[in-house]
């Protein structure tokens, strides 16, 4: 019988190069799942949020219920949200995506609505005076001017989603959260720390990427406001 190897894995150290080299495929898969779940949720949320925010801006009656509903959704803790969706989606990736969509939706609707509301009345009237119809006004004046606030919302929603995906580990679809969960059960320090650090790195990279997109989309403003 060979003696057990005396490397950092055997000693269960927090930082371990061996872990990175021997478990590379597992880590890559987890990161890919993490990115997939995050991107899908935020994109779906964005597609739903824009019309909701526009409707809430246009019809004052819609604003109250939309804001109240999103506040209620946002108040429900993530673990409970995933659990409430269990009868609908079962133990699936759709469950995690659906839960994350509901959270991202809240952040996006609030921010897009705030951006639309902040469009100066003068600007709107000037556009109308130039003969802009409601659709053209929305697409070429209001939405572009709401873009900085909307992008701020998108950044917050994305960073939050990256962090919340980990809770999806409860149903087995948590990206890096899965590694943290199994690492916890097996007391595997290197795995937990590596996965946690990767989560934060993904969040920061996504934030920086979106900030870059925002700069490109809104060259007329350098001020970032939320």
């Amino acid at each position: 019988m060979t003696a057990p190897p005396d490397d950092c894995l055997a000693r269960n150290e927090w930082i371990c190069g061996e872990y990175l080299s021997t478990r590379r495929q597992i880590i890559v898969d987890a990161v890919l799942q993490h990115l997939e779940l995050t991107a899908l949720s935020v994109l779906i949320a964005l597609v739903i949020a824009v019309p909701l925010a526009v409707a809430a801006r246009r019809w004052a009656l819609a604003a109250g219920p939309v804001l109240a509903l999103t506040t209620i959704l946002y108040t429900i803790p993530s673990l409970a949200m995933f659990s409430l969706l269990l009868p609908v989606y079962g133990l699936s990736a759709s469950l995690v995506v659906a839960g994350l969509v509901l959270y991202s939706l809240t952040l996006l609707v609030r921010n897009i609505l705030a951006g639309l509301r902040a469009v100066p009345e003068d600007t709107r009237q000037a556009a109308r005076g130039m003969g802009y119809g409601p659709i053209r006004l929305l697409l070429t004046v209001e939405l572009p001017l709401a873009l900085p606030a909307a992008m701020a919302g998108l950044r917050i929603a994305t960073v939050s989603a990256v962090s919340l995906v980990t809770v999806g580990a409860i149903v087995g679809f948590g990206g890096l959260g899965n590694l943290i969960y199994t690492g916890m059960n097996t007391y595997f320090k290197a795995q937990v720390l590596t996965a946690s650090v990767l989560c934060v790195v993904i969040a920061v990279l996504a934030d920086v990427l979106l900030l870059g997109v925002q700069r490109v989309l809104t060259p007329w403003t350098r001020a970032v406001r939320s």
Binding site: L164, T166, V167, G177, I180
Partner: peptide, 9 residues
């Protein structure tokens, strides 16, 4: 940006 679950574990 820091996942709650990660910090707990």
């Amino acid at each position: 940006a820091v996942p709650t679950f990660a910090v707990l574990v």
